[in-house]
Amino acid sequence: MKPFCTLRSNLRNAFLFSLISLALSSSALQAEGAASETVHLRGGVFRLTGTMANSTALSGADGTLLVDSGQNETEAKAMLAAIQTAGLGPVDYLVNTHRHYDHVAGNAVFGSGGAAIIATPSVRESLATNPILPNVPLLPSVALPSICFDKELTLFFDGEVVSLYHPQGPAHTEGDLVVYFRHADVLATGDILFWGMYPYIDPAGSAPGMATALREVAAMIDGNTIVVPGHGPLTDRKGLLLAADMLEDVSQTVARLAAEGKTLPEIIAAHPSARWDEAFGKGFMSPDNFVQLVYNTLPANTGKAK
């Protein structure tokens, strides 16, 4: 539609791609082996291994619901094979937690297999308009979400109550959703939560927005809930709230320094994230990169820096 949008989105995706694919090259390589397994979590809910982003599945008499489709079709096919090997039913529903390539690139594999794809409306719009990575073709129409909800959607499937919820945004992106399996008490957060690492934040999102979304979602769950983050190992409500504290603290400090007139290099040099580096600084994103992201997505700076 608007050409600059596509361009910006390409830049965005290029940035995301370079950050994640370089930093996570080990897991990306793992995916080349195309091996995935299902690991039972609780109730009818499983986790799939071997993918860059975490995918979660619900299986039962009605079939399978999968959350996120992998960073490429190789990962998607590996997940499909794992689901079949484990004897789980056909994938009837695929949920996209947001529009980033590492969560949607395998959509066509499941869409052409008959899965109905569910997402927020902006995800469909973005996938229909912009390539998910620079220099790749648009996703085919079979890969586009066909069920788009605004705020909340509940699926009664496999005897489970699956709540899909769009927390107030923008958070990680403008169109994030979380998936809460109520009976099994398992929450798949998508990328509003990266666990054990500093998160990537889309230029359309913001650190404070992610913190707000995490707090909103925390109110849905309790201490027993298994929390599957978008990236990183499983955690719980405490971990989710810790990530919210971190995002709030770092963004407040960065905003204060910026208000004092400090430049980005000066802010980075002040190490505003120092107290969180032990818990979050050892992942794919260095503390300095994260501080830069937080700075770029401050409400005052969005649009200024890419």
Partner: peptide, 8 residues
């Protein structure tokens, strides 16, 4: 499949 306010 139940929605709250809007579904497309």
């Amino acid at each position: 499949t139940s929605f709250k306010e809007e579904l497309v």
